[in-house]
């Protein structure tokens, strides 16, 4: 149950290049901004799109290649859609039994297996409901049961928690992780939320503008993001520049001193918004990183207040509501931002 995919899909708007191997039981997260090629990747793997070059092989069987295109229904690839796409004319039970019926399993057997899957996903009591009588979370569980009940060799999930509210998404996320852990084949999860990626996946592939820009464990990717998109997802400031003895100079001329004194060459630097302090006059003392800028927005962020500062780079700063009141900040205020060098992580770009 392993996936070996390296292919190119050309679209008028963008080209997606994917190089992806995954082993049995592995859960791979695909993250990236809209238009990065996440959906294109899933659709190509499912055979809903033809590849322009390269190959997709599952368990050593060639699914897509130069002269090969195994149609979707013969691939054994399950798909959980963002908007669940349960068949509106069928009950939850018949939706889940659909895959078995397609493979020629007798009706009664398909249905009893479907009932088991519904129970496993905690929606066994909703078997006779039509999709329009289900809540978003219930419908998505039925959709996951439907995909798993078809006994796929690979499972593709397109933003499975995106249509749910925060608490519904969290419950589904933890539940989904258990089922993906129990699933013997490769799972690939496209996600927009850092939590999905952190909670569910073994490995994250970061896509940007159709290319893979980073591969790593969730911890690695979260600690050392290489795109603004991921940095924003995990809530970090990210800048890129040229490092010399640990000091990184940005194209804008701004310099940031990091804790990594050895680093030289193209580099990224990250620091948490909570480690940045703001002053309304130039701070005295010896902070190494001091930047002057203007506040462009102030908004609540959890228990804190997130202040966006436009300096020679855009900075995200989290301060307490008390600090906000004391500083009297509002959009347009002139501020100085400081961050200790020890709070700045730098790594090669």
């Amino acid at each position: 149950m392993s996936l070996d995919a390296h292919f190119v899909v050309r679209r008028p708007a963008h080209t997606t290049t994917v190089d992806l191997d995954a082993g049995p039981g592995e859960i791979v997260g695909l993250i990236g901004p809209n238009g990065a090629g996440k959906s294109t990747t899933l659709r190509a793997l499912a055979g809903l799109l033809a590849v322009d070059s390269g190959e997709i092989a599952l368990d050593g069987r060639l699914l897509s290649g130069s002269d090969v295109h195994v149609p979707t229904h013969e691939r054994g690839v399950g798909f959980v859609f963002q908007d669940h796409l349960l068949f509106p004319h069928l009950t939850a039970l018949d939706n889940v039994a659909f895959g078995g019926r397609s493979r020629g399993t007798p009706r009664a057997e398909s249905r009893s297996r479907a009932a088991e899957w519904l129970t496993r996903l905690g929606v066994g009591g909703l078997a006779n409901r039509k999709p329009r009588e289900l809540s978003g979370g219930q419908a998505q569980r039925v959709a996951i049961a439907r995909a798993l009940a078809s006994e796929p060799r690979m499972l593709l999930l397109d933003e499975p928690t995106a249509s749910l509210d925060a608490s519904g998404a969290m419950t589904l996320r933890t539940q989904l992780r258990e089922h993906l852990r129990a699933f013997a084949g490769v799972s690939i999860v496209v996600t927009h939320t850092a939590l999905d990626a952190m909670v569910m996946t073994d490995r994250i592939i970061v896509l940007d503008a159709g290319d893979i820009v980073q591969i790593g464990t969730p911890t690695q990717v979260a600690a050392r993001p290489r795109t603004q998109h991921v940095a924003a997802l995990v809530g970090l400031n990210l800048v890129r520049g040229a490092a010399r003895a640990g000091a990184i100079t940005l194209p804008s001329g701004m310099t940031i001193v990091s804790s990594n004194g050895q680093l030289t060459g193209p580099a990224f630097a990250t620091f948490s918004p909570a480690t940045v302090s703001l002053y309304t006059s130039r701070p005295q003392g010896s902070p190494r990183n001091v930047w002057e800028g203007r506040v462009t927005s102030v908004a609540p962020h959890g228990d804190a207040v997130r202040v966006q500062v436009e300096s020679q780079a855009r900075l995200l700063v989290d301060i307490t509501p008390a600090a906000l009141a004391a500083l009297g900040l509002r959009s347009g205020s002139l501020v100085w931002a400081t961050v200790k060098a020890t709070e700045v992580t730098a790594y090669p770009a």
Binding site: A46, H73, F87, F98, G99, S102
Partner: peptide, 15 residues
């Protein structure tokens, strides 16, 4: 899209 969902569940075009 429902046709696509059916295909991912193993249904041929006729089915």
């Amino acid at each position: 899209r429902y046709d696509e969902a059916a295909a991912t569940l193993g249904a041929s075009r006729w089915s």
